[in-house]
């Protein structure tokens, strides 16, 4: 699964969330995703990028075009070296939030995208990898 295109956005502030969203949108449009999928991708990026700002303060979002088994996909990797998540299963449940927020970001991003993976270690950081496949 070699990436054919890759854009890396440093995430440090809420303006970077908008920048990451814009990059993802541009790539999705360029790849020919439907306007609904473009919006879906931008929304998922928004959620994981905000989690970086909110919980880890800084990190990065990498958007890339990938190809697997003859299918084209857009992959988003959001990674940080923040505090990590003690209970990932809990964090993936809708309504679970340690910030008194809606707790919809992670479970919502999973629903928005086709593939979703999260790995996290307390004290080491969190990586979310998700892909939308072209139909």
């Amino acid at each position: 699964m070699a990436p054919r295109f890759e854009a890396r956005i440093r995430i440090r502030s809420d303006a970077d969330i908008v920048a990451a969203r814009r990059q993802g949108r541009a790539l999705a449009e360029q790849m020919g995703f439907s306007s609904t999928d473009v919006t879906v991708i931008a929304t998922a990026i928004s959620e994981v990028a905000r989690n970086i700002v909110q919980y880890a303060r800084e990190g990065e979002v990498v958007v890339s075009a990938t190809r697997e088994d003859g299918r084209d996909g857009l992959t988003i990797v959001a990674r940080d070296q923040g505090p990590g998540i003690a209970d990932v299963v809990k964090a993936m449940q809708p309504g679970y939030s340690t910030a008194n927020s809606l707790g919809l970001g992670l479970p919502g991003a999973r629903r928005l995208m086709d593939d979703f993976e999260i790995s996290s270690r307390v004290g080491e950081g969190t990586t979310v990898t998700m892909t939308k496949w072209q139909r």
Binding site: T36, V40, T43, G108
Partner: peptide, 9 residues
Amino acid sequence: AFAMVQLGL
């Protein structure tokens, strides 16, 4: 609107 519904918002 579609994305909001999927997100559960």
